[in-house]
Design a protein around this nucleic acid. Sequence first.
DNA 1: CGGTACGTTGAGTCATATCAACCATAGTGG
DNA 2: CCACTATGGTTGATATGACTCAACGTACCG
Lengths: 236, 236
Amino acid sequence: MKQEELSTPYCDKCAIERGSIFKYLSAEEINMLNFEKEFRQFKRGEILYHERSRISGFYCIHSGIIKVFKTGLDGKEQIIRFARPGDIIAYRSILSNEPACTSAKVIEDCRVCFIPSEILINLVKSNSNFAFELLKLACRELGEANSYITDIAQKTVRERLAEILLLLINDFGLDFQNYLQISLTREELSNIVGTATESVIRLLSEFKADNLLELNGRKIKILDKKGLEKISKVFG
Amino acid sequence: MKQEELSTPYCDKCAIERGSIFKYLSAEEINMLNFEKEFRQFKRGEILYHERSRISGFYCIHSGIIKVFKTGLDGKEQIIRFARPGDIIAYRSILSNEPACTSAKVIEDCRVCFIPSEILINLVKSNSNFAFELLKLACRELGEANSYITDIAQKTVRERLAEILLLLINDFGLDFQNYLQISLTREELSNIVGTATESVIRLLSEFKADNLLELNGRKIKILDKKGLEKISKVFG
DNA sequence: CGGTACGTTGAGTCATATCAACCATAGTGG
DNA sequence: CCACTATGGTTGATATGACTCAACGTACCG
């Protein structure tokens, strides 16, 4: 790990490199952010914030992976989305002025910047380009949520698992050996798909038997992406 | 029906009476809206816009009810939400600059104002209070979508049907005889819950047998709201 | 070395989907 | 005016996907 990565990152660099939501801020605003923000580090398993709690700021992910989830009735998690470097989380609750409707937990050790609520509100009110970008972001997420609702309501677990694998490939990529670049427990996978852990295990075994993928513990090697697309029916 | 309701409604009146998204616009902006908008009427069954199409403006509902839905693989609709007087639809696609991710169809005859895309974009960029309101709206919808994802993934059809009935009661109310103030076909109900039409029919019969409600065709009379809450597990 | 968390497999059950038949209603056209 | 058709609603029989429960294996960790 490079030395510079261990110190507090500069927002301007972050914004440019990652094309984050901050890319339309003025130099002055970036400086203000740099001054106001607080750098924090979290290890796998740590919680950034809890459902139902009032949040005093939002997080911009600098490195690592975070899962954003809701807790169902019997305590089962439903993973809503993942946050990667460049993403922001918890902005929804701040803007709608509601308690958090999700919890956020670290999947891969991460370094984040915490930015107080007022800063966000002020930026939205003073910089219309920033507000517009945020609006676009929220609208894109809303579109994804709508698709997801339809999928869960209409597709089989088998189809959904294939689709989620494709989504993960798309979001996190494959390494040079075609291994999926995110490592999830079977339970976490089941909490994205919205099914029982055992079902995911069985279906993964089936996919393996059908030569769609290989399994080495949590590492998943993708052998036949087209096959997964066919199962998931993404291209109708 | 009163005479005034048949002519083009004035946005200022509309904004004040309904507390719509336009409530923070200046008099000047309201006038501009009044000038630029186009008044349209639709009858039950008519389509306002189709999934995948590019939209040239958004709609503000003046009267009537519209269902917003996605079409699944085998053509089955998934109803995402309903739009009532004061609500706006299609703003999502305009802001995220994507083709429509849903279709909109009339449930109850309606009168709407059509407002061109540029107007929305300009307002967002020029009026930060308006942008903030829109942002809040999108964030609230996003929160609802997240809840819905968790429900569909984790609750049984029975629980979901009870929950949807409560939601409809909440959104559309009951008349003086406790009849639900929105009339949906069994198929439409099933397209909200995300299940087969026959399942909805069977479950409604069960609810009737359990004295939770009465059925007269499409009219649903609510007898035991608490009972529905218990089934839906809304209060844990 | 025992404990804890995760992964796997099997067997049984149940909720829900599917398929099929039938009825009611209303609108249509000859 | 009546047969015709379409649409929506209902019920029954049957099939099955997915969940649950239970047992056991595996790996890592203090």
